[in-house]
Simulated assay, not measured.
Amino acid sequence: MATDNAHIKALGDIGVSIWLDDLSRSLISSGDLKKLIETKDVVGVTTNPTIFAKALSDGTAYTDQVEELAKAGSSVDEAVFSITTTDVQHACDVMRPVYDATDGKDGRVSIEVDPRLAGKTQETTDMAKKLWAQVDRPNVMIKIPATVEGLPAITAATAEGISVNVTLIFSLDRYRGVMSAFLAGLEQAKESGKDLSTIRSVASFFVSRVDSEVDKRIDAIGSAQAKALRGQAGVANARLAYQAYEEVFSTPRWKTLEDAGAHTQRPLWASTGVKDKAYSDTMYVVDLAVDNTVNTMPPATLDALADHGEPKGDQVTSNYDEASKALDGLERIGISYADVVQVLETEGVDKFEKSWAELLDSVQSELDKAGQGALAGEAK
């Protein structure tokens, strides 16, 4: 974890951990993931249903396992569970030296609860426990969506000693609910005698999707006043999230947990690939650089940072007033923050459900092919 790249080193010096928003079996088996650790200071990995659906559609890396699962008579849900947890296990093993070197802060690999359960608290909690047990690595993180129904599941999983990556956070109010749910889980873990120092958590605050939704509404308004606000909402929202983080993790409630060995729930900037080519392709990295955060980057964003990104120190804590003014400006031109974040949460869950359906279809197709191949072999 000592890159020669000046841009990446500058980001690390600010206190930002780089996690890769990508995973496939070939990335692991080729040694490319290990290489990214060594050359680009990648110290974590995040996955989601879209990433797994893409990985399954590429090449033949999963053929042997699918054939074995077909022979065993596995259902498509069982097969997907086995395939995804196998990848995460192997990625955790590659990341283990980072986990050990950072005392568990980094070296993490995240795997998501089935997104079809986003509206079901108990089922989400049960699946989180199942994934935690199946991967069986101390450096795995279980991703739970920040839906209303997901909040009690965050508490329950944390109380069990499970390290949670809370995903799909868009609104500041919901983010405060996420932090409260995490603290409640730590309090329950403390009461039951668990070692709080082993529990880690991140809160994944989505960035570029906010700009995509807001900019669409700005363009529909079309006025010069509106257009002056393009490309500001995502960064402003995330900066105010960090302000909320600083507030919550300086309270007496937190201090009691910290004294018992607990670690803060770090903000993680997700959805950091720039979708509008009018903006700098490193905007969501450079403009959100601040201590004790994670930036999970798709490969293209990581490459852009390495090539020409120029971190300029902490760009967050001195810009809270500016961020508030940007969001206030949207309200003044008729763009409702509350509506934007609700639309984004609904769409976010829906997109992951669709990706999960694609993943199931892809695996079912492979299982069917494997089964037909086995039958043909028996017939000879």
Rank of each mutant, 00 (worst) to 15 (best):
Y320V: 08
I333C: 06
A260R: 00
A262Y: 02
S280W: 00
R266C: 03
M297Y: 01
D339H: 06
V341D: 01
L344W: 03
V340R: 04
V349C: 05
N292D: 15
K275E: 14
L257D: 10
Q315L: 11
D314I: 05
E247S: 15
Q342G: 11
Y284M: 05
Y320D: 01
S336V: 07
S324W: 10
L360S: 13
S250H: 12
K325H: 13
V340N: 03
W254G: 00
T256D: 14
G348I: 06
L302W: 01
L288E: 00
A260I: 08
D314R: 01
L327K: 04
P267K: 00
Y245W: 11
E322A: 13
T272W: 04
T282N: 01
S355N: 14
R266D: 03
G334M: 14
T282Q: 05
T251Y: 02
T293N: 08
D339E: 12
W356M: 14
N292C: 09
W269N: 07
V285P: 04
D339G: 05
D291C: 07
H308N: 13
A304G: 07
A323V: 00
E247R: 08
L360D: 12
D259H: 01
A357L: 14
S336W: 07
Y242L: 05
L327I: 10
D321I: 00
N292W: 08
H263C: 09
K354N: 12
F249S: 05
L268V: 09
K275A: 13
D276A: 12
A260T: 03
L305N: 09
I333L: 08
L359V: 08
Q315A: 15
W254D: 00
K351S: 14
Q265V: 03
S318Q: 14
Y337D: 14
K255I: 11
L360P: 02
K351W: 13
A244K: 14
T346I: 12
V316Y: 00
D281V: 02
D281E: 07
L257K: 00
R266K: 10
L359M: 13
P311T: 14
T293F: 01
L360M: 15
T296Y: 02
S336Y: 08
E345D: 07
D291E: 12
E246C: 13
E331S: 15
L268T: 09
T256G: 02
V341R: 09
G261D: 08
A304T: 09
H308F: 11
D291A: 11
Y242P: 01
T272E: 07
A357Y: 10
T264A: 10
A306E: 15
